[in-house]
């Protein structure tokens, strides 16, 4: 398996793909912001937000189930919110005596719990849609236009470029370790925990050195092409009329969702 298999961009030529990356980033952040602003239990607004997401997904030609399938990444975190069910505020719905403690789920608590889940689920899907329809380098360009400091965007660009190279290197190291991790029947194998940690730590150290030396070679390659400390790239994005239309449309939609949430 090659590391770049987990690059989530899906090549298409849809209306969403063609939008300026700035517009997509702003809409995605606005949408997530709007979810955070919606009160607990505003189900109609959540439904409207979901509908908006479905329309966007459909326009992106990725298939309606695309974001849905990938949205499970945030699920494990839902555990954290379970305790919200037993909110001290609101009417108790039941009382469970566990011997050492009595748990009482309340109506407010249950509504809160599900609201958190829905907010998170919608937001994650929007983020998935964003990266599935936008090449990562274009997102970096969007950051630059939005005045994220140059040194930070350059670091992010390097990170993106070399993440795949280094992850492949990690795979090779792990494979080399596993290939030699033999066990004999009847013998306890695998060594002591401390030793295993030391092996892993040495791998981290090894990886660090290789990365460090690589950065020196990259620096040489940059210098030999004229780099003097200022990183220059061309950033050829232009906001056209359609980008503005979509941005305004999305803002109106978000406003509608907000108002719906408070009716």
């Amino acid at each position: 398996m090659h590391a770049h298999a987990f690059d989530q961009y899906q090549a298409q030529n849809s209306r969403i793909h063609r939008l300026d990356p700035r517009v997509k980033l702003l809409i995605a952040v606005g949408y997530i912001l709007s979810n955070a602003l919606l009160p607990d239990g505003s189900w109609a607004a959540f439904a409207l937000a979901w509908l908006a997401l479905l329309v966007a997904t459909d326009l992106s030609q990725l298939g309606l189930a695309f974001t849905l399938k990938r949205s499970v990444v945030a699920l494990p975190f839902a555990l954290v919110a379970v305790s919200a069910i037993f909110s001290p505020v609101g009417e108790p719905l039941a009382e469970w005596d566990l011997g050492f403690v009595t748990l009482a789920p309340t109506d407010v608590g249950v509504i809160r719990f599900f609201s958190i889940l829905v907010r998170s689920w919608l937001s994650v899907q929007m983020a998935i849609l964003l990266v599935a329809t936008t090449q990562f380098p274009d997102l970096i360009h969007a950051f630059e236009h939005l005045r994220v400091p140059r040194s930070l965007t350059t670091i992010i660009a390097f990170l993106y470029r070399y993440l795949f190279v280094l992850v492949d290197e990690v795979y090779r190291m792990l494979r080399a370790r596993d290939a030699r991790s033999a066990g004999l029947p009847g013998q306890k194998h695998g060594g002591k925990l401390l030793w295993r940690v030391k092996v892993t730590g040495s791998m981290a150290g090894q990886l660090f050195l290789r990365s460090y030396e690589r950065s020196e070679r990259i620096y040489n390659a940059m210098v030999s092409r004229g780099y003097t400390g200022h990183f220059r790239t061309l950033n050829p994005h232009d906001l056209n009329r359609r980008d503005w239309q979509v941005l305004i449309l999305a803002l109106v939609l978000i406003a509608m969702i907000q108002v719906t949430g408070r009716l």
Binding site: I155, F158, Y162, L163, L166, V167, M173, S211, Y212, I218
Partner: peptide, 17 residues
């Protein structure tokens, strides 16, 4: 700049160890 960039990739990759 290249050092920090590659180091960021290093941290990222090392998190998989």
């Amino acid at each position: 700049i290249p050092l920090m960039g590659v180091m960021a990739a290093f941290i990222f990759a090392a998190q998989m160890l």
